[in-house]
Amino acid sequence: MLTLYGQGFSSRLLLGTAQYPSPESLKQAVKASGAEIVTVSLRRESARALTGQGFWALIEELGCRVLPNTAGCRTAKEAIATAQMARELFGTDWIKLEVIANDDTLQPDLFGLVEAAVALSAEGFAVLPYTTEDLSAAERLVAAGCAVLMPWAAPIGSARGLINKDALKMLRAYFPDIPLVIDAGIGTPSHAAEAMELGYDAILLNTAVAKACDPVKMAEAFARAIEAGRLAFEAGPLEPRDMASPSTPVAGTPFFKIDHAS
């Protein structure tokens, strides 16, 4: 059971709601993924189009917990105001906190992130920060009150998987009791399974499902991979070794002669 801010979830997949070919495809993909948490955002509303109103009706149909983000915010001040608007709009104090440093990498601005996390935690928000694998930033975020950390695997939308696996292993080992969610950079179900095998608690992804040729099938593939990865972690995988180790018993090998061994 995944527990985030005191709430239990049976699915370890958090799914984004953007970039699907159609609203129907989004609905079916969420269903196929088994996700109980979906991420959403807020954007400027046009009085003519009223785009957000229709989208909200669709989200309510899904029956999932919503996790609003502060995507696109470049400063702590922007992220704080966006989180406050999101809390009122979506009726939740959960916030996926993003403060973006750079347009090309979409990497978190760790300084702004910590600043915003301190302010929002003090206001009673349940902050889920989109961060890097940096240990000192993680420590500051936990000290600020974050009870969940969401490190990237690779830049958002890059589909590259765990590009700094050693650092992610270190982060896991360093924070054994903080739920860690891989957020961003996952391209294939095998990437997700790999992160789960390392002991990560959950995976948040969007593009890998939404931009697949068949998002619904890919959503199911991710659900199964994440479940398999988690089971493998719980089962305790083997440590890799350099040399072979026979699996079939050596004792009693037919035609065995002592000089075979030399």
Binding site: A18, V40, S41, A71, M85, L89
Partner: peptide, 10 residues
Amino acid sequence: IEIVAPRQGG
């Protein structure tokens, strides 16, 4: 003035 509404997000 900013007026915002729910939208798709990742």
